[in-house]
Amino acid sequence: MIQIAVAAVTHKRPDMFRVLLDSFAAMARPEGAEVTFVFVENGEAPTVGEIVEAFRGQVAEEVLFDIEPRPGIPMVRNRALQIALEKGCDYMTFVDDDERVTEDWLVRMIGAVTERDLDLAGGPLVLEAAEDRIGAWPAAFLEHLQERAKKRNLQRAEGVRAGTDDAFNIYTNNWCVRLDKVRETGLRFDEALQFTGGSDTKFSRDFTAAGARTGWVPEALVYDRIPERRLQAGYHYRRARDQSTNAYVLNRKPAGQAIAQSLSRAIEGVVLMAVSPLLGRRHAAKAVYKFGYAAGRFRGILGRGSRHYDPEKAAAHREE
């Protein structure tokens, strides 16, 4: 019987975390598998203990809950990973605390990982608004994000058909790892990337470099629930900027190439913004993304890193 740690980390998003746990309770379990749920809260003291206790009453499996007081996403991910390793699990999954899994998500993911003998696998996100109703501008930013996610998912599904899906980075928003390979490599999430974002990208690249077999599971769907406060122009710009900065830092492309990319995206942004009064808000949303991308490349060239998840600047990521 294989042992699976189904993990999530959380920080000041209790309502969304509760929705995730409800989806865990409703999901199907793979045949011949023993599931342990692993939850770690990032903070000095627990605030979601009652939510976890309520979840324990919903499921038959063991539920482990811990605190990681050091702020930072890689710190709390590493704590969850260590719990799964100490438990002796064979596989570990991650999803984010603002998501919900589909009923067959775990069955699909584990089935593909075992059938294809993968060490690390990822699956697609389907983006949706967290609220029942959102304004016209947030809807435009959501539409742009959905367009990008759909394009990315189609590209990766084609990669599976072509046998090239081992080239894709795997992110912890929908993630499964073989823990024996983690034990072999000793790899952990890079805690130097405390507030930048991108520690899962670096883990994926380092794992692949260490010989891990990676792949994509198009059928293992997770819904990413985006609140309206993260569907605003300012956040959309900062998110694109910081992701672009991280990509530059991780890829280390020549500065000349990065400058050319930045100027190209900025020009595209100007054109999109100019036509948006005629063609609609989605074009303006796309322009904001292009401007953020352009700014992020220049920040990377200048040696300025991302602070996207700095606790003092990350109010948009919290429910309070």
Rank of each mutant, 00 (worst) to 15 (best):
D242N: 14
G197A: 08
A60G: 15
P69S: 10
K151I: 07
S23F: 03
G43I: 02
S264A: 08
T245L: 01
V217W: 02
A209M: 04
L179V: 06
F65Q: 08
L279G: 00
A139D: 09
I51H: 08
R108N: 15
N78L: 01
V222G: 02
G123I: 09
A80Q: 08
T172G: 06
D190K: 13
G32S: 02
Q232E: 13
N251W: 08
G305H: 15
M92T: 07
G163R: 01
Q243D: 08
A192Y: 07
E268V: 05
L193E: 05
S199R: 06
I67G: 00
R318A: 12
I267E: 05
K150F: 10
Q58W: 12
T214N: 09
A285D: 05
R229E: 14
R307H: 10
L179R: 10
V107W: 00
V249C: 08
E68T: 03
R116I: 02
S264C: 03
A33E: 05
A255H: 10
E86M: 00
K181A: 10
F203I: 01
A240N: 09
W137E: 15
E86L: 05
L142T: 02
V6A: 15
A220Q: 01
D98N: 10
P69F: 10
S244D: 02
A5L: 14
R241N: 07
V76W: 10
R56F: 07
V48D: 11
I134G: 04
E53F: 01
F65T: 07
G43P: 08
